[in-house]
């Protein structure tokens, strides 16, 4: 499944600066092709996370449209859009992300549980892959930042989604786990998923098919892996 953004622009209303409107993402067209890893990097506040959220269907653009295989994402009603997110989109948010009253295994299989599916074996496989198998019964309060991060990645990938958005996915991870996570994303892209990573980590660039940079809301392509 490919994701195509058409003339999307995102503005925030702010009252504390000289200007009341902050343009987080300037008008742009953008494509996340299926089977490729796309990386966006840029300084803090450059708008890369905003762009990722708009593309992931969790932040309405001020202007423009986002299409998934030609389907207008924001034209869907909330019920349908939520179901679509569950089935087709894997999202790794920035920072700590856990449902605090669920243990690690329950957190990982949550996307399955919403629609009355078990998902235990897939969830166990994911915990194994990201080295948190022994922590299945542990509550999130007792996890380190790196373990929480791997749990969030396992949850995002557990349904083998067709589109994956990862916001600083390797932020709290050591070299070994960074490699595991990036390998997994690369592998999913090889299997046909469209992957978008927003990161500061230069290591991610080596896994990228296309690299973009973002500066003050403006997106520009830096490199493209030869086909």
């Amino acid at each position: 499944m490919e994701v195509r953004a058409q003339q999307i622009r995102k503005e925030y209303i702010r009252t504390s600066r000289d200007t009341n409107i902050l343009t987080a993402v300037a008008s742009c067209d953008f494509l996340i092709p299926a089977g490729q890893v796309t990386v966006i990097h840029g300084s803090s506040g450059s708008g890369k996370s905003t762009l990722l959220n708009v593309l992931a269907g969790i932040l309405h653009p001020t202007e423009g449209k986002v299409f998934y295989d030609g389907m207008d994402l924001y034209a869907k009603r909330d019920e349908k859009l939520s179901g679509f997110r569950n089935l087709h989109i894997g999202y790794v948010p920035q920072g700590r992300s856990a449902v605090s009253s669920l243990n690690v295994l329950e957190n990982v299989k949550l996307p399955y549980a919403l629609y009355e599916e078990d998902g235990s074996s897939a969830a166990l496989e994911m915990t194994e892959r990201f080295g948190i198998r022994d922590l299945c019964e542990v509550m999130p309060d007792c996890l380190s930042g790196g373990e929480l991060r791997r749990m969030a990645i396992a949850r995002a990938l557990v349904r083998k989604p067709e589109v994956i958005f990862a916001d600083e996915p390797t932020g709290d991870l050591d070299d070994e786990n960074t490699k595991t996570v990036l390998d997994s994303l690369r592998q999913l892209a090889k299997e046909g998923a469209a992957v978008l990573i927003v990161t500061h980590e230069e290591e991610a660039f080596t896994y990228a098919d296309r690299i973009f940079s973002m500066n003050a809301g403006k997106l520009s392509q830096e490199s493209c892996r030869p086909g």
Binding site: I58, D78, E79, S82, G83, R85, N86, L87, Y91, P93, S97, A98, V99, S100, L110, P111, L114, Y115, R155
Partner: peptide
């Protein structure tokens, strides 16, 4: 937490 639930596919009503 609520936002996370929404991300994984929980609708507003649910």
């Amino acid at each position: 937490e609520y936002a996370l639930l929404r991300v994984v596919g929980v609708s507003r009503v649910s």
